[in-house]
Design a protein around this nucleic acid. Structure first.
Lengths: 191, 191
DNA sequence: CGGATCGTTGATCAACTTCAACGGTCGTGG
DNA sequence: CCACGACCGTTGAAGTTGATCAACGATCCG
């Protein structure tokens, strides 16, 4: 039973406390330590995850062997490899805990059942996904619009607290730059 | 009344022909010529668009004055600046017809009313948006994973017919490269 | 036919990567 | 609690990728 999930469920729709609890009970609670791997690239992706505490990251292995982080998920974010989840095939990404975290998970069938039993949730997830889409549009835009250096400065301005929470090499990976270059950028900034 | 829309609406949900027609009737039909601008950057974004025939593009103006295309929408795709649409404020993008097109549009309030009257549509759009999210995840991934040159080759392989439909400078813009560099890539390819 | 737009070419330049090396720090086992 | 090793961040040199600018040829359309 997670307070974060029941709160979250009630943000977009009218849902009784009872129903919120009944829904919340369908999720499995995972308490994971920093660096724990929830989903391994190549494994079948049956679950969707909700972060109730902590932080996860989604990443994959590039041809040159380095890890490329494509997203972080903080409290109250949903995360999975949506392509694999929908099509019920193997994941092209891994998911790892960046901090000690509490994560709720539900598998594909459980999720479908939930939507069938509580059709009001269709609206909730329609809104969640529509917003995620808006965010993705913006994300793609800034990748086109700005230099990597500018991207770093923007990120620090936008998420000042978050920069402290992740090691620098993960931030570099997320921004799509080498740790060395990020180091150079930071040096420039402070001098 | 658009055959494309009624067909599209019936792909994810059970919907009677009558209801499909009744829904479809709420959309305004726009027949636009190539290069016609449906939405102008900075204008208020009240509508969401469904492409029934032809092709649209979403783009914005970069600081250096060049246009950056971030997506194309082909038949049966939904398109808008989702951030602006949701929040009912001004658009950060423009939308232009790439070819002579037929487009259906509905404004924010009309869309909300439709969802209220036909709640089954929540499911339809939940699925549409979930899929769009999966696509965005993949899009972001390839932007990180591959060189611009590789991106071009992949694109040609994946959408061989589409490359013929758009002028080369728009393709370059979408790939995030200069027309000159695209020209160079093509030269290398054929020699 | 004439003008504007589009694609190409080559030269120079900026952004960012790669590699190798070094110093600091953190956590773990003795 | 200390010592050691692994990992992390930094530095500098050399190399790549792709942008920018200017000029020219081709093509499309009125």
């Amino acid at each position: 039973m997670s307070q974060e999930l029941t709160d979250h469920l009630q943000t977009n729709i009218q849902l009784s406390e009872e129903d919120a609890l009944r829904i919340s009970a369908r999720f499995k609670v995972l308490k994971v330590k920093k660096k724990f791997i929830l989903l391994d690239e190549g494994a079948s992706c049956h679950h969707i995850y909700f972060v109730s505490k902590g932080c996860l990251r989604l990443y994959f292995l590039k041809e040159n062997g380095t890890e490329q982080t494509t997203s972080f998920a903080l409290e109250r974010w949903w995360l999975t490899d949506f392509t694999a989840f929908q099509n019920q095939n193997n994941s092209a990404y891994s998911i790892q805990a960046v901090e000690n975290s509490e994560v709720l998970s539900i598998d594909y069938q459980g999720f479908e059942n939930l939507l069938a039993e509580f059709p009001i949730l269709e609206r909730h997830f329609r809104i969640i996904h529509q917003r995620a889409n808006a965010a993705a549009q913006t994300r793609i835009r800034v990748l086109y619009e700005y230099s990597r250096e500018h991207l770093y400065h923007q990120f620090v301005l936008k998420y000042p607290g978050f920069v402290q929470r992740v090691p620098q090499y993960l931030l570099a990976s997320f921004l799509g730059i080498s740790p060395e270059y990020l180091s150079e950028i930071r040096k420039k900034t402070f001098s």
